[in-house]
Amino acid sequence: MIKLRVFLITFIVISILSSCNNKQIFDTYQTVDDIWDKDEKINFTLPILDSTQTYNLFINVRNNNAYKYSNIFLISEMRFPNGKVVTDTLEYVMATPEGEWLGSGFSDLKENKLWYKENVGFKEKGNYTISLQHAMRKNGKVNGVSSLEGITDIGFRIENAQILKKD
Rank of each mutant, 00 (worst) to 15 (best):
S51G: 06
Q53M: 07
Y69T: 03
Y67L: 03
N60E: 15
Q53P: 00
Y69C: 01
Y55A: 04
L46A: 07
I35E: 11
A66P: 01
L49E: 09
T52M: 10
I35Q: 06
N60C: 09
I59H: 14
D50K: 05
F44H: 10
D34Y: 02
Y69G: 02
N65G: 09
I48P: 02
K68C: 02
K68A: 14
F26C: 06
T54C: 01
T54D: 09
Y67V: 02
S51P: 08
N43C: 10
F26W: 10
Y29Q: 03
P47I: 07
T31I: 05
F26E: 06
L49P: 06
Y67D: 07
Q53H: 07
D50G: 05
Q30Y: 11
Q53I: 01
R62D: 14
Y67Q: 04
Q53T: 03
Y29I: 01
D27N: 14
D33P: 01
T28R: 13
Y69N: 04
L57D: 08
S70N: 14
L49V: 04
Y69S: 04
F58S: 14
L46F: 13
K41L: 06
V32L: 05
Q30M: 05
N60K: 15
D39L: 05
Q30R: 09
P47N: 04
K41R: 07
N56T: 03
R62C: 11
L57V: 10
D39P: 00
T31R: 06
N64L: 09
T45N: 12
N56Q: 04
D34N: 04
L49A: 05
N64A: 06
S51M: 05
W36N: 03
D33G: 01
D37Y: 03
T45Q: 08
N43Y: 14
N56L: 02
K38E: 08
V61D: 14
I59S: 13
N60V: 15
T52D: 09
I42R: 11
F26Q: 06
D50F: 10
Q30A: 02
D37C: 00
D50E: 11
T45D: 12
D27R: 09
V61Y: 10
K68H: 13
S51I: 06
N65A: 08
L57G: 09
S51A: 12
S70Y: 12
R62A: 14
L49Y: 13
L57S: 08
D27F: 14
P47Y: 11
D33T: 00
D33V: 00
I59F: 13
Y67N: 03
N63S: 13
I48W: 08
S51H: 12
T45E: 15
R62L: 08
N65P: 04
L57Q: 15
T28L: 05
Q30G: 00
L49T: 07
D39R: 08
V32C: 02
L46M: 08
Y29R: 02
I35A: 05
R62K: 15
L57R: 09
A66T: 09
V61M: 15
V32K: 03
I42M: 08
I48D: 12
N64M: 10
